[in-house]
Design a protein around this nucleic acid. Structure first.
Length: 276
DNA sequence: AAAACGTACAACCGCCATCTG
DNA sequence: TCAGATGGCGGTTGTACGTTT
């Protein structure tokens, strides 16, 4: 049917945001709230694509955004969740970054994605994280690398390990990817439905959302965790009855974890033990 | 000191699900 | 019920900056 372009390319500024633009956008959102992003540029007087405004707000201007210095705990959580969620099946479009971000207050999916791609993925992938067809750019790492148990390895000759990161970026994170390290076979990554609706459900091939007290950010997603339990084995099994069944164990483990922060200590155990 | 190289991050792009009239 | 609008996501790219040679 053809889609209208998000924004007219003409007259729309691109590239880095200036502090003035940031101020303008922040002031507008604070005054009018989030949403109606397409209207934001005109009403706020910004020569930006609405989509760009939304991204800028969500990733950088939103209150309580935590910048830099991803802690060891956060990194560990990223590694573990990615191990569980990141192993994607071909053809499935996942939402794993946002789901992981939802468990890291103040962190955005973009930040986590970048962190993984640039740091953890490379480390996990032994320096071969980038796909061959992308040249020097680091692209989405082969997720199986994370599951290979090599996340805690410091690849020899890895330049990134020697290069000092920027001051404001996780200088303490090098060498601290403490993955469980147990070999994990390819795991079906549950389809993580966007969390802004207030409830997460998992579905194998389709997305199902629920209504809820509309969350306004990742933190709100945690409040939906209690509803995770409604991601029932029943529903999921029905939805995935054609599956081989093993994936459900992983999904249950994830749901259990997301269900309660008190569950976190369990994840300190080797994943193999957890999933057994 | 400077060029080459590598890393990290911000931002953009295109696709898809959901919402709305 | 359907088409268009909107929001949201993962993947990718551009580039500033730090390190190495």
């Amino acid at each position: 049917m053809g889609r209208r372009a998000c924004c007219a390319k003409e007259g729309v500024k691109r590239g880095a945001w200036t502090s003035k633009e940031d101020d303008t956008l922040a002031a507008y959102v604070k005054a009018h709230g989030e949403g109606k992003w397409r209207e934001v540029p005109q009403k706020a007087g910004l020569r930006r694509c609405g989509k760009s405004c939304r991204l800028r707000w969500l990733n950088y201007l939103r209150p309580n955004i935590k910048r830099g210095n991803i802690s060891d705990d956060e990194e560990d959580l990223i590694v573990r969740l990615h191990k569980l969620l990141g192993n994607r099946s071909e053809g499935l479009r996942e939402r794993s970054w946002s789901l992981i971000a939802a468990r890291l207050p103040g962190r955005t999916d973009n930040e986590i994605k970048n962190y993984w791609n640039s740091t953890l993925g490379r480390r996990a992938g032994g320096g071969a994280a980038g796909t061959p067809d992308t040249g020097s750019h680091v692209t989405t790492p082969v997720s199986a690398a994370a599951a290979s148990g090599s996340c805690d390895e410091e690849p020899g000759g890895q330049k990134g390990a020697a290069a000092a990161p920027r001051v404001d970026h996780h200088p303490d994170s090098a060498g601290s990817a403490a993955a469980g390290g147990t070999a994990s076979p390819a795991v079906w990554a549950p389809k993580a439905v966007r969390c802004t609706g207030g409830l997460l459900l998992f579905h194998r091939n389709t997305r199902t959302t629920t209504t809820g007290a509309g969350g306004e950010g990742p933190d709100d997603c945690s409040s939906s965790a209690a509803s995770i339990s409604s991601f029932t084995a029943t529903g999921a099994r029905e939805a995935c009855s054609s599956g081989d069944g093993d994936w459900m164990d992983d999904v249950r483990a994830l749901a259990s974890f997301l269900d309660s922060d008190e569950e976190w200590p369990r994840w300190q155990m080797p994943q193999q033990q957890l999933l057994s």
